[in-house]
Design a binder for these strands. Structure first.
Lengths: 131, 131, 131, 131
DNA sequence: GTGGTCTAGACCACG
DNA sequence: GTGGTCTAGACCACA
């Protein structure tokens, strides 16, 4: 379900947190969905339970998920986005985009291919929302 | 010129490496261009010279740049892309894109905004190539 | 176990890397074997932990060893040798052999002595394999 | 004539010195032979003349070559080998052999192939001596 | 002045 | 306890 790359220099706890947030942002997980149990997920990913528990705790503190004792961990309703209208995209988005393009270029993808793929993803996302 | 965020759990050396690779794949750095000096860049970014030197060394070993002893570090000609014709984009690109969207969503950006920004970047890239 | 000579102009990290690779190709270290800990080896050799860690990191990136987080560093299965059938030994091996003979001659060894020693090493290697 | 690899971490001055000593040890340069001029060799190898001059100076000081003002630099008669009978080959030769085997293994050669090649070289060397 | 090597010593991620 | 990251600061190789 989620994937973690032990050879990535980013700490695995950060990778896992990003993976979960990513699945929420892209609609693969929606509010109310149940996350895997800490023990199950740590076994699947070959991680220590402490590591997974730490991620869930951080996500809970960030208000992304909620843990119901005895029931499990669930995706919360998305909080209203901060209403900042004017953003410095060049400063904020640029490093994130650079990272994507850098990683993709190592795999042999060009900038055009990546953007093309993302446009396709976006369309899929919109269709799903309307359904 | 480049930017790193010390509060990002990704190691700064990895951030810097990604930033440089990103500038190459987006055409802001082209083969033959000279990178900033190790000392100059480390001062600009508030990093230790060792950290920058490590990035340059890794990029050199990856064949992305070439360093001429006593002269500086330069962007190399791009190697021929790996010849895999059919790629499993869903498996290869998806996690990278998810990570981008996850990080962007924390900043309050939607999927549409990110894709829109990247399309603008791509257009800029093409214009530069034709110039 | 390993040895480095600080008066050798070859950087000590390179010497150590060569020593480890040498022990693998001569069969003194086999896949699955655990390397000494970074701290233990650096103490034994009188080096800084960073220097040893750098060597392990380079060997990892080269695919020679694998490090399991929190557990240690281990020799990997040898990757399949590159499939080049006809090699230009004269061009590829000659400089490496010349370097060995040059260094040995400074110590007063003749070509015959060196070759004789290597044949003995090879025999030891074969005996070990059969055992 | 000589070769130097700028991507080798060993300093080029040390590489060049080893290359020259190697050609003497293996009989490709014999006493009385004239070495290339400093300027010619530095141009051929793409090095600074200072670097080559440094090597010649070190070889001269070591008694390996002799410089005749206005005439050039020449290989000297080999000095009598130091008469140490009992040597700790394991300690002295081992690191040198490990380096060779390590470098050769990166190129895909096995221990046997290297030893076999060296035995062939040795035979060639003996034949040349008798001629 | 350019990049490269090394040390001492601190702090982090993971099991 | 394991390896990984980073800093401060010294010294070396090369043009």
């Amino acid at each position: 379900m989620f994937s973690v790359d032990p050879s990535d220099p980013t700490p695995v706890y950060a990778q896992l947190e990003q993976a979960i947030r990513g699945m929420i942002t892209t609609g693969q997980l929606i509010p109310g969905d149940k996350l895997p149990t800490v023990r199950g997920l740590s076994k699947d990913l070959g991680l220590n339970t402490n590591t997974v528990a730490r991620v869930y705790a951080e996500l809970e503190q960030a208000g992304v998920v909620v843990t119901k004792r005895g029931a499990g961990t669930f995706v919360r309703e998305a909080p209203p986005a901060p209403p900042q209208l004017e953003r410095d995209k060049e400063r904020e988005l640029r490093p994130l985009v650079d990272r994507l393009l850098a990683d993709a270029s190592i795999l042999g993808y060009t900038m055009s291919e990546v953007v093309h793929y993302m446009r396709a993803l976006e369309v899929r996302h919109h269709l799903k929302e309307k359904a």
